[in-house]
């Protein structure tokens, strides 16, 4: 189980990396943490001709609050989020999810942006990015664009990122104190990819009614998905246990689950119902 051969490049600057990407196109692949890429190469399911290692590019190594958003550079490791990176619900949600991402020796290497670029359907960061409305800052030689999360995820392991582009930064809104965020996931063994997860975010108005609601589901379809009907059902009323349960039931019915030998569709729906309710309840209990 040895990786296929490749050429290795270790640019020192963003510009150099983008030039390499432009040169190698489809044959090139960014290496950041490598924690998803290397196993797929070991199984020879992925065989890039060139790896462009961005780990030496200092300008990609940042994580800061700025203009009401949390800006996460391409070299920010999962482990960084284990303690809140910012005060308020966003930092707390990221910390809550971080401990579910694989294990400590993976979290020291794997990156937030790498997860977004890899787009595993069961990625915690992808699910949060969709739930919170992340924005991807994508660079290419001589160009830059911002892609909203809603347009980012296209299918399993496929995003809006073009072969010659680098996902340089992801930004998340820093939610205010009137938001309640919840997270729940189910896996069979500690640290494994989840069979289902739910990320929820509710904004409560001063009367305690739900003013805004976002529910994202991960690990249950080809991409993370929004449970919009379920979220909408919560609006304009207090989040009572009955309403949360009803919303969870709506979430469980409102999507086409992926099926496999270990997870039949109806079981996936059971998990979505349970995870959605637990995420919602957990967010309000806190």
């Amino acid at each position: 189980m040895k990786c296929p051969p490749f050429d290795y490049h270790a640019p020192r600057s963003q510009a150099e990396a983008l030039a390499l990407l432009a040169r190698h196109g489809e044959e090139g692949k960014i290496l950041a943490g490598g924690q998803s890429l290397v196993p797929t190469m070991a199984f020879r399911l992925s065989r890039p001709a060139s790896l462009i290692d961005i780990n030496r590019i200092a300008e990609l190594d940042h994580c800061r609050a700025e203009g009401g958003r949390l800006r996460i550079g391409a070299l920010t490791r999962h482990a960084r989020f284990e303690r809140p990176v910012a005060p308020g619900p966003t930092g707390a949600l990221l910390a809550r999810a971080a401990e579910h991402i694989a294990h400590a020796p993976i979290r020291t290497r794997g990156t937030f942006c790498g997860s977004l670029a890899h787009a595993d359907p069961a990625s915690e960061w992808c699910c949060i990015a969709l739930a919170l409305g992340a924005e991807m800052r994508v660079l290419r030689e001589g160009g830059e664009r911002l892609v909203p999360a809603a347009d980012w995820f296209q299918s399993v392991f496929t995003t809006a990122l073009a072969p010659d582009e680098l996902l340089a930064e992801v930004s998340l809104p820093l939610l205010g104190p009137d938001w309640r965020c919840g997270f729940a996931e189910f896996n069979r063994r500690a640290g494994d990819f989840a069979l289902a997860m739910a990320v929820t975010a509710l904004r409560l108005d001063p009367a305690g009614h739900v003013a805004e609601a976002r529910i994202a589901l991960g690990g249950v379809a080809g991409t993370p998905i929004l449970a919009e009907t379920a979220a909408a059902s919560l609006l304009g009323a207090p989040p009572t246990p009955e309403r949360l349960r009803a919303a969870a039931a709506l979430a469980a019915e409102g999507f086409e689950p992926t099926e496999d030998a270990q997870v039949p569709a109806d079981y996936r729906r059971d998990l979505v119902r349970a995870m959605t309710r637990r995420a919602l309840e957990g967010s309000l209990a806190a």
Binding site: A10, V38, P105, R109
Partner: peptide
Amino acid sequence: GEVVRACLHFAIQ
């Protein structure tokens, strides 16, 4: 000083 999986890291890095 950081704990890593040596099978998921290239020596050249």
